[in-house]
Design a protein around this nucleic acid. Structure first.
Length: 498
RNA sequence: UCCUCGGUAGCUCAGUGGCAGAGCAAUCGGCUGUUAACCGAUCGGUCGUAGGUUCGAAUCCUACCCGGGGAGCCA
């Protein structure tokens, strides 16, 4: 079978393509069919005098997303989508699709989400899923090439160790079970068996968060390494992200183009070292005069942009009256875009004082809010690694800094361009007695962690690991503004179908 | 849970107290090369739901439902 992706190998040959009609245009004796076969798009030209009567009638019957088998000659043509087009000799319809809901025009989010099963066929969604696939492939390649063993942590868990509020509950015969929110503790057990392991599976959080960064069901990659300290952990995380991005840049040029992704910052992420700053340094940065100045500058920039957009809008509104139809549509679109951008600016202008307040009054010991993270990353083009957080805001299993007991040897990787935390990890506490103390400090019952404590009882070693959120990574690499487009069927608050 | 914006034709939206509108889709017709094709015509309505104010409500008021964006929390 020939796929559109490989058409260049079949120039001037007659081939048969099977697929769906993505869009079509017609004139009296000519049909332009945009064929979609899953591997790409190809324009197929049907000339009335070039095909049989049956084939011509078949062309006339076509609707968007009708399934077809098309035979024709592959011809190079600049005017076509992929650089090649098919001069059709035979057209056979498998099924005529009636009233396909997603038209080539724009649609609202809710409508598209209701039709997610069909939306997946659209170009941008197709490209995003290809990038997701390339990321997953790169992740496995990276770890497999380095001797890591993929091992799966359970999805049902029996106890709600770290608080129940954000866990999904389910019945488990006569007991209660919870859906996992991290495989990390199991990862540690598996690392003690295999040295280097990674888990790759779904996780669930019942958080009532309706934001562009949240799903209730998402995929995490959690490597866990015996004999790794915090620095080795950070090195691995940085090399890992660089490997994944390089791989996506190499393999997904076309997809990133469809997504209109500006790749300059991704390229920098591959070539430049990630800044590593301690939590304490990050707090100083937030509270600095430079930060205040940067925020003031942001306000001025936004105001200026708003003014310019308003002027442009007045200009083109004047033009609209005597504009031709196509120009009118163009103007309407631009007015809509300007309106959306102005809304965004106004929201920023409302928010910046809060950001400023939050940053400048940041107290050592607090956890970063979303705006603090964004402000920190705005100073760099690459992701940054923030390490050594106050132990109080971090999990019980994290090792304390031997040089300062108030600090945990934790690390977060913050992606640039506002994509936020994509990695969270730490060196783990390896000492049995210390770990028991931590459990008590966190009011956690020792008995349910008995198996976990056994890892320190029997051949405890220094070890570290981290977790990467797949969907946030996909969103970042694709330049998408919402994680709902990074997974085939997103599960989020208020969305369980399709 | 809170703040904020929204719900009008299959879709995207305009309409802010006085006859329910446009573009796209669909249907029919026209056009030899189109790129979200274009041109002409036709079809298409429980204005989210319930109540209220008014001579008159898509428009004003109240409550509720649903959705977007954000906060908190988080990857």
């Amino acid at each position: 079978m020939v796929y559109i992706r490989n058409l260049a190998d079949h120039e001037d040959q007659e081939v048969t393509l099977k697929g769906w009609i993505y869009n079509f245009r017609s004139s009296k004796n000519l049909y332009f069919l945009e064929l979609r076969d899953g591997s790409g798009l190809c324009q197929c030209v049907v000339a009335k005098d070039g095909v049989s009567e049956e084939s011509w009638e078949a062309a006339e019957s076509l609707r968007q997303e009708s399934s077809v088998v098309i035979t024709g000659t592959v011809v190079e043509d600049e005017r076509s989508v992929g650089g090649y087009e098919l001069q059709v000799s035979k057209l056979e319809v498998l099924q005529v699709a009636e009233d396909y809901p997603i038209t080539p025009k724009e649609h609202g989010v809710d409508f598209l989400m209701e039709n997610r099963h069909l939306w997946l066929r659209s170009q941008r969604q197709w490209a995003a899923m290809r990038v997701r696939n390339a990321i997953i492939y790169a992740i496995h390649t990276f770890y497999q090439e380095r001797g890591f063993v993929q091992m799966d942590a359970p999805i049902f868990t029996g106890n709600a160790a770290e608080g129940t509020t954000n866990l999904f509950e389910t019945e488990y015969f006569d007991d209660q079970a919870y859906l996992t929110q991290s495989g990390q503790l199991y990862g540690e057990a598996m690392a003690m068996a295999h040295g280097l392991i990674y888990t790759f599976g779904p996780t669930f959080r019942a958080e009532k968060s309706k934001t562009r960064r949240h799903l209730t069901e998402f995929w995490m990659i959690e490597p866990e390494m015996a004999f790794y300290d915090l620095v080795m952990n950070m090195n691995l995380a940085e090399n890992f992200i660089k490997f994944v991005i390089k791989s996506v840049l190499d393999r997904c040029e076309k997809e990133l183009e469809i997504l209109e992704r500006d790749t300059t910052k991704l390229e920098k992420t591959v070539s430049e070292e990630f800044p590593r700053i301690s939590y304490t340094e990050a707090v100083e940065t937030l509270r600095s005069d430079e930060m205040a100045a940067m925020l003031d500058q942001m306000v001025d920039d936004r105001k200026q942009e708003k003014k310019e957009l308003r002027e442009e809008r007045e200009e083109i509104k004047k033009e609209r009256g005597q504009a031709k139809k196509w120009r009118k549509a163009q103007i309407d679109q631009r007015i809509k875009d300007i309106g959306a951008r102005i809304d965004q600016i106004e929201e920023d202008l409302r928010n910046i004082p809060d950001w400023r307040e939050s940053a400048l009054n940041f107290e050592w010991g607090e956890d970063f809010g979303g705006s603090d993270e964004t402000l920190l990353t705005m100073q760099y083009d690459t992701p940054i690694l923030v390490h050594r957080f106050p132990a109080e805001i971090k999990a019980f299993y994290m090792k304390r800094d031997p040089e300062d007991e108030k600090l945990a040897l934790a690390v977060d990787m913050l992606a640039p361009e506002g994509y936020g935390e994509i990695i969270g990890g730490s060196e783990r506490e390896a000492d049995l007695e210390t770990l028991k103390e931590r459990l008590h400090e966190h009011d956690l019952p020792e008995d349910v962690f008995q198996w976990y404590l056994d890892l320190r009882q029997y051949g405890s070693v220094p070890h570290s690991g981290f977790g990467l959120g797949l969907e946030r990574t996909v969103a970042w690499l694709c330049g998408l503004d919402h994680v709902r487009e990074t997974i085939p069927f997103p599960r989020m608050m208020g969305r369980l179908t399709p």
